[in-house]
């Protein structure tokens, strides 16, 4: 699968999905005009990758600074896919980077982390976020 690289805009995050390395990144702000159409191709590509015969470990780094409620829904869908892949035996690590002073992103990380049992979800306070 080809790498997906999308530059950040005022309203959408940086996206870097490197399937050959099993490395994924989402960074910045997310409140796209239409979050369903922004995230749908990303979710589809991630699903195809996780459901393929590929067994490489997956590492997913998020460094979000703000997202709206419809983007939260897309993130949740992504996390469910990653957890399901973990349950099927895939090695999956999700790193949730946030600025140590950012209460909202820290709380969202704690919330999302509750859903992971088979994939690892790590809180990463990162001053440069």
């Amino acid at each position: 699968m080809d790498t997906i690289s999308i530059a950040p805009t005022d309203r959408s995050p940086l996206v870097e999905f490197d399937f050959s390395q099993g490395r994924f990144r989402l960074e910045g702000e997310s409140y796209p005009e239409n979050s369903a159409s922004f995230f749908a191709p990303l979710l589809a590509a991630l699903r195809a990758f996780l459901e393929s015969d590929d067994t490489r470990p997956v590492s997913f780094d998020l460094a979000m600074t703000y997202f709206n409620s419809s983007s939260a829904k897309a993130l949740m869908n992504m996390f469910q896919m990653l957890e399901d892949a973990g349950a099927r035996g895939r090695e999956v690590v999700v790193n949730w980077h946030f600025h140590p002073d950012d209460d909202t992103m820290e709380e969202f990380g704690e919330d999302f982390g509750l859903d992971f049992e088979n994939a690892a979800f790590r809180m990463r306070p990162t001053p440069k976020t």
Binding site: Y66, N68, S69, S70, D101, D102, D103, T104
Partner: peptide, 17 residues
């Protein structure tokens, strides 16, 4: 304060949308 500003911005975005 940065946390307050983020909360205001979030409320603003959801309201306008």
């Amino acid at each position: 304060n940065a946390n307050v500003a983020k909360r205001v911005f979030s409320v603003f975005v959801e309201q306008v949308q």
